[in-house]
């Protein structure tokens, strides 16, 4: 009899533990903390400082979501993931959202069962070489040894690029960006390839950044964005619109300086809806409070443009230009659907 009860309990526990819970929002609220998958360390995008506080362009998304959901941008547990471990971490429920310069591709969306909630950085794959090599174009890399992070789309682009240009190469597979940096600096590879933004960030951390050059060829499209699991549309909506709020804020001129002022109500109904200042309660539609948008923007440290400028923009050591990542009104690709 006792055994039967025990088995029954075991089976019930098994069933309860067996499902990856569908309601991520409830889980996060109950936990009081957002688990956010980030890079193991890429200056500008996601890197911990000397005190272990994470900051960066991708980290801002985590903060925005945490602020919108929990009302506190600091309630984030950052889970460093490598190119290899990131998808398993997300699929298994170890992280609620993966914000780790991940390329949006068909198979990741459809086959790996993830939902990309948008693009926060339009990127492309490039090459970095030592200036002493005298290489000025990626087409001169025939026969080169190339360092590449394993488990990334760049691995496949690289193979295609060399095949199309009828060149040969020898890949050196590395696990993390730090390892790639070390191998590249030791001369174990002639070229280091990853997303151009990643190259710029990596180079910024070198002792002599001016000795290295990023080649002009961009060999692929790499729309980088945060992603969540398939199957929880409410959570996907929350994260998607938290990110859109940052982009919309820039478009409407909402900054961390004037947000308190604007959230008291403005003439622009769109801003009112974004900040929860007007009659419309958009927050209720996604299970959040009315002023979720304001919290997200404040928590992330400003609008998209402010975050960009503070983490990876031209005034930082990484020095990336807005380029494709400018607002659509400025000739870029950033275009958020309306808050209505």
């Amino acid at each position: 009899m006792k055994n039967t009860v025990f088995l029954g309990t075991l089976a019930a526990a098994g069933l309860a533990a067996g499902f990856v819970s569908a309601a991520t929002l409830d889980d996060v609220k109950a936990r009081g903390e957002l688990n956010c998958g980030v890079n193991t360390g890429l200056v500008g995008f996601a890197a911990p400082d000397a005190n272990g506080n994470w900051s960066g362009f991708d980290v801002a998304i985590c903060k925005a979501v945490a602020a919108a959901v929990l009302g506190d941008a600091s309630k984030v547990k950052y889970v460093p993931t490598t190119g290899q471990t990131r998808f398993t971490a997300l699929a298994s429920g170890e992280v609620d959202i993966l914000s780790r310069n991940t390329t949006w591709t068909f198979s990741r969306d459809a086959d790996l069962k993830f939902t990309f909630i948008g693009v926060n950085y339009y990127d492309g794959q490039g090459f970095m070489v030592n200036k002493a090599l005298g290489v000025t174009s990626a087409k001169e890399l025939d026969g080169a040894t190339v360092c590449i992070q394993t488990g990334t789309t760049t691995e496949l682009n690289l193979a295609d690029f060399f095949k199309v240009n009828n060149m040969t190469y020898s890949p050196v597979t590395i696990e993390t960006n730090a390892e790639g940096e070390q191998q590249f600096l030791a001369g174990a590879c002639d070229a280091y390839t990853t997303d151009a933004s990643g190259l710029a960030a990596t180079r910024a951390a070198f002792a002599n950044p001016e000795d290295y050059v990023i080649l002009p060829e961009i060999i692929s499209k790499e729309p980088l964005g945060p992603l969540v699991r398939h199957g929880d549309d409410q959570w996907a909506d929350i994260t998607r619109w938290a990110m859109n709020a940052l982009i919309a804020a820039e478009e409407y001129g909402v900054t961390s300086a004037n947000i308190e002022e604007l959230s008291k109500g403005t003439e622009n109904p769109e801003i009112n809806r974004l900040l929860g200042a007007g009659e419309d309660n958009l927050g209720a539609m996604i299970g959040l409070e009315k002023d979720w948008g304001k919290k997200a923007i404040v928590g992330a440290g400003g609008n998209y443009g402010e975050i960009f400028a503070a983490t990876i923009g031209e005034s930082t050591p990484i020095g990336l230009a807005r380029g494709l990542n400018a607002q659509w009104t400025q000739g870029g690709l950033l275009y958020t659907p309306p808050f209505r």
């Binding site: 098994g14 699929a91 496949l156 020898s170 890949p171 699991r229 398939h230 199957g231």
Partner: peptide, 29 residues
């Protein structure tokens, strides 16, 4: 086994070794 099957179903994934016959697309040194 049951847990695995249920979770795979919940994620909408099937269990198949068909990928072994697909093009790899990457190089090995």
């Amino acid at each position: 086994v049951d847990n695995t099957v249920r979770n795979l179903a919940a994620l909408g994934k099937d269990f198949s070794f068909g990928f072994l016959w697909n093009r790899a697309g990457y190089d090995i040194n």
